[in-house]
Design a protein around this nucleic acid. Structure first.
Lengths: 245, 245
DNA sequence: CGTAAAGTTGATTTTGTTCAAAGAACGTGG
DNA sequence: CCACGTTCTTTGAACAAAATCAACTTTACG
């Protein structure tokens, strides 16, 4: 609700080289600078709702959000975890198909829909980057379908932890091979359950089992250590870069 | 394997107005005409394999194919049903992440990867259409995640039938409201099971139950009639345009 | 502190899988 | 054109994985 007071320069932006603007040159960045606005959301706040108009398209700058859909009777399925540099919204569609909810405090870099759509039309560097990001997201979404459709509860949890560690490593620029890997879960047990198509009880039990098997260590319920990353990876019947998140 | 002998003009192409070339003008089409080649695949033939190079990007012109991934122990999950106008392959990625298999006889309109990537770079009408199609596919893939993660077997089947009927209606230009709706299943029971994250037995049982409930009629095992489309839709805990396929 | 929210653990039930077998459809070759 | 084998589909019975129901523990927070 509160407009962020700061008006940081794109040059210092933490997602400058990974967001939708990544390919832009200085001149293009100057245009973005004119059009962008920041907005922050408190943890738990709704950023968008399925079926409701989405007036702005944004890049997530700081924090973590989930994209999900809730069926009439309350069953919820998350379809994506949004982390810094991820893009929110769909040029050409005025209405969101999913609920988007801030998990931690979130800062978005926003563009008014019409203006952004013009940008996409007139700025090949943006169009090309958006296409590339969308294609990546598509691969991730399809990998997610494999996880949801065919993996056991244990495999789902392991695959989630592995993806999270990889994604965290990509930011930290540390290889997840460096052991042990310390992992902070951005999601509650319930949110993990919604992400993996499980119940909260099953998530809890599987984590306990992994702990008893020595594959992970649980500190604070949000902090996990993976003593042997390779060994954890072996637990899931899939190799290579499939990306569950 | 066999190069199609024909060299049809794009003007008469059945997917002229819905494929990746939909926005192209006559001049751009002339360029495509120079670069394209047709190739057909027999039912069951492999069009691409996960982990293998994909030298051509294509539009599916005629037929039906599935995109899937198989885990080491043989569990398979389909992540998409490919129908006419659907695009196959990913500019910027030389290796396929999924297996693509012809279900019926399939004709592809193919472009050599490098050449197509140049086309995307130089032809805004293609880039823009590709982006739009990719965004649509992303929504579909995420809708699929909701189905796989949170729906019961019965809901999965109903949602599959409803989507198929809608998609078929889009081609036929008949409203699925016109009753009764005749539906031809392009997939075997096993392929449906792989698509919905179920076993073949569960698919069969659920179809039988739907038949006993009077929601569908089974003729040939591939031919289904939906006497009351509205009523079938009510069976699934989701409304609106979510797109399961 | 004391209350609420989040997480864990146990007992039981349900849904869908697995195992098994029989029935229908299809294609081939005699 | 029909017999035969193969594949696909259906159905049944037993089983297993995860959900549900319920209680208890831990953590967070005013």
């Amino acid at each position: 609700m509160n407009m962020s007071p700061r008006n940081d320069s794109c040059q210092n932006c933490p997602i400058r080289h990974s967001a939708v603007c990544a390919e832009c040159d200085a001149h293009e960045l100057a245009v973005l600078e004119q059009l962008k606005s920041y907005r922050t959301y408190a943890p738990g706040a709704s950023i968008a709702s399925a079926g409701e108009p989405l007036t702005h398209l944004s890049s997530l700058v700081v924090g973590c959000a989930t994209m999900s859909r809730t069926l009439e009777d309350g069953r919820r399925q998350s379809v994506g975890l949004l982390l810094p540099a991820d893009f929110i919204g769909r040029p050409g569609r005025a209405v969101s198909l999913f609920d988007i909810e801030a998990v931690s405090e979130v800062t978005l870099c926003r563009f008014e829909r019409q203006q952004f759509e013009r940008l996409v039309r007139d700025t090949p560097h943006i169009a090309s980057r958006l296409l590339s990001m969308t294609l990546d997201e598509l691969d991730v979404a399809r990998g997610m379908a494999v996880t949801l459709g065919r993996m056991t509860a244990r495999e789902k949890i392991v695959s989630f932890l592995v993806s999270l560690a990889r994604r965290q490593a990509a930011v930290t620029k540390r290889e997840p091979r460096e052991m042990p890997v310390a992992l902070h879960l951005p999601l509650s047990r319930q949110a993990i359950a919604d992400h993996l198509g499980l119940t909260i009880e099953t998530v809890s039990r599987q984590l306990t089992q992994l702990r008893k098997a020595g594959l992970i260590t649980l500190g604070d319920s949000r902090d996990i250590t993976i003593p042997d990353f390779e060994r954890l990876q072996l637990e899931v019947g899939e190799d290579e870069v499939t990306g569950t998140i």
